[in-house]
Design a protein around this nucleic acid. Structure first.
Length: 232
DNA sequence: GCGACAG
DNA sequence: ATCTTGTCGC
């Protein structure tokens, strides 16, 4: 792989990213979350996409894809490592979401093409980048208050938001992926919060990808009588 | 040259 | 990201 060629490709591709609200999702019906993980020491890349109804935010479908890893992790080039698996999971979906939250950055990237933007372009859907750590840019220290927000700035440009979604938790880095404005990106993430650090679509994608207990319970509830599964 | 560096 | 137990705090 030629990193310099990929860098040039990113610069050209970034010019195609749409940073405003291109479609009207006043009343989205389905919002999805996408997450990627690795198995066998990184040999296998596993992508999970979870579809949630909106505004009830209930899991209605999920798809998982496992493929051989094609590239190592290189900061700034994450999308080339993750998009093949994401595309495989995407193609398994029986219906498509109106909006997709991708783990990682959108335009808050050195060349403005994080995985959320790159994948959004590939599938031509509105996407939002929801990252847990900073990749580039600077921001003022955040007050401890939940809801505290600061602009993420890079080279004089506001490339995203640093937002404390929950008290005593590290902030989230939210940015435009594709076909969504910066303000809408933050707005929709906020609409999908249910008391945890991560928005529900992202949380479910993570739960599915990592087979967490919350997802296992959901699976059991599917082929059993829901009424007999009153946990807690 | 040195440090930073999504997942 | 992943490998992993106990543990600190709400």
């Amino acid at each position: 792989m030629d990193i310099n060629a990929l860098r040039e490709k990113q610069i050209l591709t970034a010019a195609e990213v749409i940073r405003h609200d291109d479609v009207d999702f006043t009343q989205p019906e389905i919002i999805a979350g996408a997450d990627v993980g690795f198995e066998q020491g990184g040999e296998i890349t596993r992508a999970a996409i979870a579809l949630l109804s909106y505004p009830s935010l209930e899991l209605i479908e999920y798809q998982v894809a496992r493929i051989n890893t094609t590239m190592p992790y290189i900061p700034g080039f994450l999308s080339f490592r993750e998009y093949p698996a994401l595309l495989a999971a995407w193609e398994k979906l029986t219906r498509l979401p109106d909006l997709l939250f991708v783990d990682g950055h959108g335009i808050s990237h050195p060349r403005r093409l994080g995985v959320a933007s790159h994948f959004g372009l590939l599938v031509d859907r509105p996407t939002i980048g929801v990252a847990k750590r900073r990749l580039c840019g600077r921001f003022e220290p955040l007050p401890p208050d939940p809801g505290a927000k600061a602009p993420l700035m890079d080279k004089g440009e506001n490339i995203g938001w640093v937002w404390r979604s929950k008290l005593r938790c590290n902030p989230l880095f939210i940015s435009t992926g594709h076909r969504v404005s910066m303000d809408s990106a933050l707005y929709w993430v906020q609409q999908c919060m249910r008391g945890y650090r991560l928005p529900e679509p992202t949380r479910w994608a993570d739960a599915v990808a990592s087979n967490r207990t919350i997802f296992q319970r959901w699976q059991q509830g599917r082929d059993s009588e829901p009424d007999f599964f009153v946990l807690r």
